[in-house]
Amino acid sequence: MASTLGSSLGQALGIAGYAAAFGIGTLFLTAGLAKLRSRRVFPGVVANYRLLPPALVGVVATLLPPAEVVIGACLIVGIGPAAIPAAGLLLVFAAAMAVNIRRGRSHIDCGCGRSDLRQTLSGTLVLRNVVLAALLLPTLGQLPSPGSAGWWIGLASGSALYLLTLLVNALAALAKGPLAIERNMR
């Protein structure tokens, strides 16, 4: 009985791990690709955080997008150890946002990769990144085999996580956008 319960828990954690890996991997992949498409303006976004010496801004702006693409692709295909740099980046991003919010600089763009939907810094974004980093913990365990029922469940759940994150981000950005501000001024 105990081994069956342990096995079931292990399978559930594996499915949750792959769901997180797929959903967050897709976020990293799409964010990295968007930053590559906006590579002329991305150094300005990095510089706007005012956390790096000017000599490192270009280096970070050049290396971060391809790193996000590689980390995202690794997570999507189920390479569990990619969760470590992914969680690390999410926590660094959360810390950078928190520092700027504390400095009173919440008006700057988060640089999350969606240049068509500018999103200013907020405690919600900080919390989002911390939660996403925590969701990656089960990814370090045994993930389901590709093509198995658990893998398909993880894929569907990860897709839902990705879409839900996009929806929440879009709603949060729209709530702070020009139309919302104009509506609140009436």
Rank of each mutant, 00 (worst) to 15 (best):
S145P: 06
L140H: 08
P81T: 10
Y49P: 06
G44W: 06
G150N: 03
V41K: 13
A86P: 10
V59K: 05
L51S: 08
I76A: 07
L13F: 11
L90T: 04
R37K: 15
S3M: 04
R37Y: 08
P65Q: 07
F42Q: 13
Q142I: 04
S122Q: 13
L164C: 09
V92T: 12
G78N: 02
A86I: 12
G154E: 05
P138Y: 00
A47D: 07
A47H: 04
Y162D: 03
W152C: 02
R114I: 03
L125H: 11
A173V: 09
V92F: 15
S3N: 08
A73W: 14
Q142S: 13
A20Y: 01
I181T: 13
G58R: 12
R102Y: 03
L164K: 00
I181L: 11
I71F: 14
A175G: 15
V41S: 11
A170C: 05
V45Q: 08
G111P: 15
L179S: 07
L132W: 00
L91P: 02
L33G: 12
L132G: 00
Q11C: 04
V77S: 06
L27Q: 02
Y18K: 01
P66L: 12
Q11T: 08
A170K: 00
L164S: 07
L127Y: 15
G111R: 05
P54V: 00
S7I: 05
I71A: 11
K176N: 15
R103G: 12
I15N: 01
F93A: 14
A34V: 10
L5W: 09
T26L: 05
I181K: 12
A98D: 15
A134D: 12
V126R: 10
R37Q: 09
A172L: 11
I101S: 10
L143Q: 02
V92D: 14
V46M: 08
V70S: 14
G147P: 11
T26H: 01
A173E: 10
G72E: 09
L91V: 06
C110N: 12
N129A: 11
I15L: 04
R40G: 03
R37H: 08
R39K: 09
L64D: 15
D116K: 15
P65C: 12
A67C: 12
G111E: 14
R105F: 04
G6N: 13
L51D: 06
L164E: 00
L121P: 13
L127A: 15
R50S: 07
I108Y: 14
I71D: 06
S145H: 08
L36C: 14
L51W: 10
M97I: 11
W152D: 02
V69P: 15
N169K: 01
G111D: 15
M97C: 11
L51T: 07
